[in-house]
């Protein structure tokens, strides 16, 4: 018995050392960004963990002004917000039909859509497609691209939830005289609420963090989202790490807040696809 308790103690000790080591490895770079965001201009030639000699809160307003971040923030909100709403709206309807009508054809169509999680984008011909459709350098262009990219995973995620809603509900509603649209809007959609929120949060995160589509398809700086804005700011002010760190914080703030508030949904959604209980 003495042996096993000692053994257990060593095990717990090792586990804790490992956990703290890993957490520190993640915390230090984040702390580095936060501390340096408040330092004065000359202090950040090399970023270190010393506290700022003087806390300069105006770094944030400086960077917002120089990097035109107010505009970019609104742009990012529009791209990610509208992109999320239309993606989730259409994807949930598609997932519902795929899940309810299990014919051979519909199953193939579902596989065809879900295959989109895997297939890579061909940016060369996508550029041609976007030009042909007159979508390059436009707000609808980016929003539709985000929808195309996020649809497969969103359909996949919601599909799993639809099958948990009993079909008997649909039958009852139809007998009571519901039209297909009423059935979906009044009965099914409310029951999918938690799936919709999960899919929506994940979709928003991905769209907010997206960088490549704007890089390829947005040429005028007044349409740039936060990610593209920070990349260009970084190019212009390469040595001013205090300002870059402030920009990093402003760019990450919305996703961090979303993460803190919706952790349950984010982790739940990511694991729903992976773990089948």
């Amino acid at each position: 018995m003495v042996y096993t308790t000692k053994n257990k103690f060593v095990q717990i000790l090792l586990k804790n050392i490992l956990a703290w080591f890993a957490s520190l490895l993640v915390i230090i770079p984040l702390l580095l960004v936060v501390l340096n965001a408040f330092k004065a201009d000359g202090e950040t030639l090399n970023m270190n963990l010393q506290l700022p000699k003087q806390w300069i809160f105006s770094n944030f307003s400086t960077v917002a002004e120089k990097g035109k971040l107010a505009r970019s923030f609104v742009n990012s909100m529009l791209y990610a917000g509208i992109g999320t709403i239309i993606t989730v709206f259409f994807a949930s309807m598609a997932a519902y039909v795929f899940s309810r009508r299990r014919t051979k054809g519909m199953e193939r169509l579902y596989m065809y859509v879900v295959l989109g999680m895997v297939i890579p984008v061909n940016y060369v011909t996508l550029t041609k497609t976007m030009l042909t459709l007159h979508l390059t350098n436009t707000y609808p262009g980016i929003i539709l691209l985000y929808m195309a990219m996020q649809t497969p995973f969103t359909v996949f995620l919601i599909y799993g939830f639809v099958s948990k809603i009993p079909v008997e509900l649909d039958e009852a509603a139809i007998i009571d005289g519901c039209s297909p649209i009423q059935l979906y809007v009044r009965i099914v959609f409310p029951m999918l609420k938690s799936a919709i929120i999960t899919a929506g949060v994940l979709c928003f995160l991905n769209c907010w963090n997206e960088f490549m589509m704007p890089l390829y398809f947005l040429h005028s700086s007044n349409k740039w989202p936060m990610t593209l804005a920070i990349y260009n700011f970084f190019g212009q002010y390469e040595m001013k790490w205090n300002l870059i760190c402030a920009d990093v914080i402003l760019t990450c703030a919305p996703v961090l807040i979303l993460y803190l508030v919706c952790q349950k949904y984010i982790v739940g959604g990511q694991t729903a696809g992976a773990v089948k209980g």
Partner: peptide, 13 residues
């Protein structure tokens, strides 16, 4: 119901 998703995904991906 599936049209919107399938269409955009097909055209742009």
């Amino acid at each position: 119901f599936a049209l919107g998703s399938v269409l955009i995904y097909t055209v742009l991906s």
